[in-house]
Computed example of a mutant assay.
Amino acid sequence: MASQAAHGTVDLASPLEIVLRDGAADSARIETRSTDGLAPRHALPYWRDGVLRRMELLDAPAHANASGPQRFHARLIHVAGPGADLVQHISDAVSARRDRQRIRRDGCDDVSISLLASARPTRLVHRGDHVLRGGDVFVTDYAQPMEILRPRHHDISLICSRQRLEQALGGDVSLLAGRRLPRRGLAMLLGSHLRLLSAQMQWLTPPQRAAAVRAAVDMALAGLQTEMGLHPHDERMATGGLHHAALLAIHRECHDPQLAPERVAALVGCSRATLYRVFAAQGGSVAAAIWSTRIERAHALLTGGQMAHLQIAEIAHRCGFADPPTFNRMFKRRYGMTPLEARDLHKTIL
C-alpha cells in the first residue's frame, strides 16, 4: 500500500530518509507520508519505524492499539531542498526521546530550526527543561540527547547540516540546543514564512520550492545571528536573510500609509543603517521596495476580479496610498496605463 505524494508514490515499507546534500540549486523534490489507508493497528508502528526512526517512542499513547475514532493519525511532507530539508509534521500525541546510544548508533548530528505551528504546551528536555507553545521557534540538535512530550501538534522544521550552520555562524552550535527564539523581529517573520511555505509548497514548482527553502534558511541563520549575538562568518548569508525578512515584513505591512524604512528595520530587528546596507547590496532601496510592493498589490486587486466592486480610490487606500493622484501617477509610470485603463483592459481580455 502506498501513500499519495505530490510527485509519484512512496513505498510505505521503505523508511523515510533525510539525507542532507548540496543538491541542485534550482530544484527541491517533495514526498508525502501519511497513516491514511493503513489498518489502525499498523498506523503507529509504521510511523515509529518508517518516520520517527531517529527517536525512541516512550509510553505508547492510548490510541496505539485502538481502532475506530481512537486510531493514530499522522502526516508528513518532506521537501529535500538545496542544502537543507523542510519537514512539515502533523501528528496525534506522541512522546519520544533520543539518547546517547541512539546518537552513537546512527551518527546523525543535524540541527533543526522549528516552528511549533499549533499545539497545546509541549515539553522539551534538551539542555534544560523547556515548555514550548504554539508560535514558538526553537532549535534542536540531533547530536545531543533530548526528550519531547507532545500533544497533538503541527510543526514545520528546517533541518540543516551542522557543518553549514557552524560555517555560517562562525563557531560551535551545540549551545543552541533547546534555545527558543524571542517572539519578535526575524524569528517572528521566519515563522510567518514557514507557515506560508508549508501551506503552498505542494503547489510550487521545484525551482520555486528551492528558492523558498533557501530564503527560509537565510532568514533562520540571520535570526540566530541577530537574536543571539553570534558573529556571522558568512556575511552574504546574513544579508540575504535580512533582505528576505524585510521583504516579507513589507508585504505584510504595505497597507499602512505610514510604513517607512524605520518601521521595517524595527520589524526585522536591525538598525536603519544596516537595513539600508542590506538593500544596497541587493541593488535596491527600502523605499523603492515599499512603493513597488504597494503598486504590485494594487495591480493584482484591480485585475483579479474579486475586487471589481471597489472604487479605485478604495483599492489605493487598501494598498497604502493616502493620496489618489500619487497612486495614479506611480501606477502609470510602472504599467504604462492608468488604474482605470488597467481594469478596463482586464475586463476586455476576460
Rank of each mutant, 00 (worst) to 15 (best):
L186H: 03
R179E: 14
A342L: 00
S271T: 15
Q167K: 13
A289K: 03
L275Y: 05
G223E: 08
L186Q: 03
S112I: 04
P69N: 10
A199T: 07
P206D: 14
H7E: 15
A187C: 02
H7S: 13
A316S: 09
D92A: 15
T303M: 00
C254W: 07
Q88W: 06
G191C: 07
Q208N: 10
G68Y: 07
L340I: 05
R41Q: 14
L186K: 01
C254R: 15
R21E: 15
L76C: 15
L20S: 12
G128K: 03
T239R: 10
E253V: 02
N328R: 14
S34Y: 07
E147V: 03
F279G: 03
V173Y: 02
V51S: 11
C160L: 11
L248P: 02
A84S: 12
I18H: 05
A168R: 09
P151W: 03
R71H: 11
R333E: 10
F138V: 01
Q70S: 13
R41T: 12
H42T: 09
R152E: 15
R343A: 03
A281E: 11
V213N: 12
S174L: 01
D109Y: 01
H233M: 07
A238Y: 11
D110A: 03
L204P: 02
A216E: 15
A96N: 04
Q306C: 02
L158S: 12
L38R: 12
H244F: 07
K332N: 07
P207C: 05
A60T: 09
A74Y: 14
R150L: 07
D22R: 05
L259E: 15
H63Q: 12
I349D: 13
D136R: 01
H309P: 00
L189N: 09
Q163N: 06
A80F: 05
A313I: 11
G68T: 09
R21D: 15
G135C: 03
G83E: 10
A287C: 00
T293C: 10
H233N: 15
R195K: 09
R294H: 08
P261E: 04
L124N: 12
V173S: 10
D129V: 01
